Amino acid sequence: MKIVIATPLYPPEVGGPAYYAFNLEQALVAQGVKVRVISYRFERKLPPGLRHILFFLRSLTVVPGSDGIIVLDTFSVGLPAGLAALIFRTPIIVRVGGDFLWEQYVARRQEATTLSSFYLAPRFFTIKEKIIFKLTKIFLHWATVIVFSTKWQADIWQQPYNISPAKIKYIENFYGHKKNTSPRPYPQDFILVWAGRDIFLKNLTLLQEAFALAQVEQPALKLQIVTNVRQAELFQVLDKASALILPSLSDISPNIVLEGLMFNLPMIVTKEMGLKDRLQDTVLYIDSLDISDIKEKILLLASRAGYEQGAKAAANFSFTHSYEAIAEEFINLFSKL
């Protein structure tokens, strides 16, 4: 079997798509699949449109002769690589890992709109955003299979993008093995870590305001903000952290939460998330729009009783989902086409 992986990022670039593409490639190769990866290079610096055209031309050189293509986004590489696959009648499996339109809209308007509410009301889109929505809808129509990591996002997308239920499949994100085997002890110095991209939807400003309120009651609390680091550096931070917080407006299948669980970190996460069915009561949930709720959950987790309960819950979470299993699931999807 010959598979092409189209991804916006690939090592040495950092980010979820880069790590996912690399590890999926390795797992597919280990199972005897011939894999070619195509990702943005010099095109990244070009304006949209021209960037897409050049990536489409590059895709035309790798898609012919392949048994299928796995596309790791719906717009930046999805559209040009999908068009190349359509021309050569190559099966397209698109893995939906985020929502580019929602991210663009929230960033532009600086508006606290959750993903679950985004498509339920009329929005004042710019011409660019209207184009993104229309072209994403067209690309999803081209796709042979649409893979979601959570049912939560699939339910949000199905109606606005007019997705046939027959096209929808689920492959969960990577859940790694534990780095630690026992619950973390209550720390002498409480260090709460936030890690991610400093963009509006990650809600960092409200977190800092809520943390300042918590510090009024417990001045010794510390907040560590981590951005733009490689995974190895992030793991060093998580190993030394006391707890993790993710107060995003919404998050679909956040890698940082799954990585935190590998280190048995007690966590506070947004209730607007696609992993609730899997995590259940493993973490503390917050209303990411409510500064008081964020503050109170920080104080709860910083207390001995709250921390020990959270540490035990994190240590008891035992689900794993390897890249080998993920590769097998993609192979099985292609074998049925």
Rank of each mutant, 00 (worst) to 15 (best):
M1E: 13
P8A: 12
P8F: 12
P8T: 14
P11K: 11
P12L: 01
E13V: 08
E13I: 08
Y20W: 08
L24M: 08
Q26A: 10
A27F: 08
V29T: 09
A30P: 01
Q31P: 13
Q31C: 09
Q31L: 11
V35Y: 07
E43F: 00
L46E: 00
L50E: 01
L50Q: 07
R51C: 00
L54H: 01
F55N: 06
L57E: 08
T61D: 09
G68T: 11
G68M: 11
V71I: 14
V71Y: 04
L72C: 03
D73G: 09
D73M: 09
G78M: 09
L83M: 14
A84C: 05
A85E: 14
R89G: 10
P91C: 01
P91L: 03
V94L: 00
V94T: 10
V96F: 04
W102Q: 10
E103H: 02
A107H: 09
A107T: 07
Q110V: 14
E111G: 02
A112G: 10
S116W: 03
S117C: 09
F118H: 02
Y119L: 01
F124A: 15
F124S: 15
F124D: 15
T126M: 02
I127R: 12
K128W: 06
L135A: 15
A143P: 01
V145S: 03
V145M: 09
I146F: 06
S149E: 15
T150C: 04
Q153E: 08
I156K: 05
F174A: 12
F174T: 05
G176V: 07
S182M: 08
P183Y: 04
F190Q: 11
L192N: 14
L192M: 10
V193R: 05
W194D: 07
N203K: 03
L204W: 03
L207Q: 10
A210T: 12
F211Q: 13
F211D: 15
L213N: 06
Q218V: 11
Q218L: 14
A220Q: 14
L221V: 05
L221Q: 13
Q224N: 14
I225E: 12
I225C: 11
V229T: 08
R230Q: 13
F235Y: 15
F235L: 13
A243F: 00
L244A: 01
L244T: 03
L244H: 08
S248D: 07
S253M: 04
S253A: 14
P254C: 02
I256P: 06
V257H: 09
G260Q: 07
M262L: 07
F263C: 01
L265F: 10
P266T: 13
I268M: 06
K271H: 02
D277T: 05
R278D: 13
L279W: 05
V283F: 00
L284D: 03
S288I: 05
D290G: 10
D290F: 08
S292G: 13
S292H: 14
S292D: 15
L300F: 04
L301M: 01
A302L: 03
G306D: 00
G306K: 00
Q309R: 10
G310R: 00
N316F: 01
S318I: 10
N332M: 02
L333T: 06
F334T: 05
K336Q: 09
L337C: 12
